[in-house]
Design a protein around this nucleic acid. Structure first.
Lengths: 235, 235
DNA sequence: TTTAAAAATTGATATATCGCACATTTTGCA
DNA sequence: TGCAAAATGTGCGATATATCAATTTTTAAA
């Protein structure tokens, strides 16, 4: 039985809404009453898997990778979070430790909100409750997608898909109509796709030869997203 | 940098708490006021990915697989849900369609709760809100684990891990101390591990020869869980 | 601008696992 | 209980990907 065409890849929802949007002013003020802001340099760690959470983070500017380390210390990137996204709330809600680590992949400005404030607002705000439930269940769907993609697609197809997703995330840095530059190390890209650096380079070269994209040093500029969609969705 | 030993696999939390436990009687009664019960035969589909949700499901007895289909119709099992677990609430909370499909893997007795009742209780019950947030964020952690496991472990290691997890789920069917029988088709097992049936059979044979387990027809009886833990955690 | 260190790229080889074809066993139904 | 269909198990060639080593390019600091 085939469900071909039921969920074409170009209809997927890559964008994540801000959890804090539409929050009543009263709740928002209470939530941000004791926030402190910090600039994280590229590569700086925000929190570590296994640590107990002291609060949540709100990305005001920049990009953050959420990742897990295997026993040899090789990292696998689970998600790239963009500005205006909330970070580190899973650990508090699950009453457990951080399930993953977070580090900035470019210089980022991030606000810290103490656990007490977050829980206080959570206890009084139906809107925040509803919004978090929506966000979490949406995240579940995205993660489930990634998981089955991993089981069913090869490196070439996975890289194509990640490039499409990353293009959306880097779009916000550029004017509409301008070509979008993905500025990410091959190592991070490899850890996101779940393969080695060398394999990413090889597939990237292949894409370059097909005219799908071009590279300028570390930067990747996508010329033909449709071609990527076809590749990612092929199997 | 190594985090060796930080999260030994035998300390992982495989069990999922019932979302409905500790729910105030009032909320529970309202939630179950219009529930209807149905017996699903082995293999019967409960809901399909992409459909709009009409309500949620509560597994009273049996086991259910949550899965996604690729374009050729090959399924990838994301999760095996046990009795006393809630099903299908992601779609309602995310205000979207089902992100995956669900089907029984053994004869199951399942209650259906209409969407309206679920949302009504959600609007009035802080306990249910809190519990759902906890469950969803826990699910996220479990899924993130699966994802990074996929990226970093081979078929042998993944199968070992899934056998450990399944053993926990099948435990409830047997008396303490009695050997636990995992009764699952090789196809389902392969779709859970993310490989082909043949590869599962090959690794299973290998495990059998090492005295880790034995098989009786379709049934798998684990003799040496510790050995499995070592294998799953090896890399 | 120069230069050293870091990152990216290319090549070659080893290895896991995929997927087909076929044999065997088990299961459930008449 | 017997039988057909379904599920399981086995062998093997093809292939994608991992891994190691060496080279080139880029980056960022002096």
């Amino acid at each position: 039985m085939s469900i071909k065409g039921l969920f074409p890849i170009d209809k997927w929802d890559f964008k994540s809404e801000s959890v804090l949007a539409d929050l009543p002013a009263e709740d928002f003020d209470l939530l941000t009453a004791h926030q402190t802001e910090q600039v994280y340099k590229k590569g700086e760690i925000i929190f570590r898997e296994g640590a107990y959470p002291a609060g949540i983070f709100y990305i005001k500017a920049g990009k953050v990778k959420k990742y897990k380390l295997d026993k040899e210390g090789k990292e696998h990137i689970i998600y790239v979070a963009n500005k205006e996204e909330l970070l580190g709330y899973h650990a508090i809600l699950s009453e457990d430790r951080y399930p993953d680590s977070a580090a900035s992949i470019e210089e980022s400005r991030i606000a810290f909100i103490p656990k007490e404030d977050f829980l206080a607002v959570l206890n009084q705000s139906p809107v925040l409750n509803r919004r978090l439930l929506k966000t979490l269940s949406h995240e579940f769907a995205v993660l489930a997608n990634s998981l089955s993609m991993f089981a069913q697609k090869n490196v070439r197809e996975r890289l194509a898909l990640q490039l499409i997703v990353l293009r959306e995330k880097y779009k916000v840095n550029f004017k509409p109509g301008m070509p979008v530059e993905i500025n990410m190390s091959r190592d991070d890209l490899a850890n996101l796709v779940g393969t080695g650096r060398e394999n990413v380079v090889r597939v990237l070269t292949e894409f370059k030869e097909s005219g799908i994209l071009k590279t300028q040093g570390r930067k990747i500029i996508i010329n033909d997203v449709n071609q990527l969609i076809i590749i990612a969705d092929y199997k």
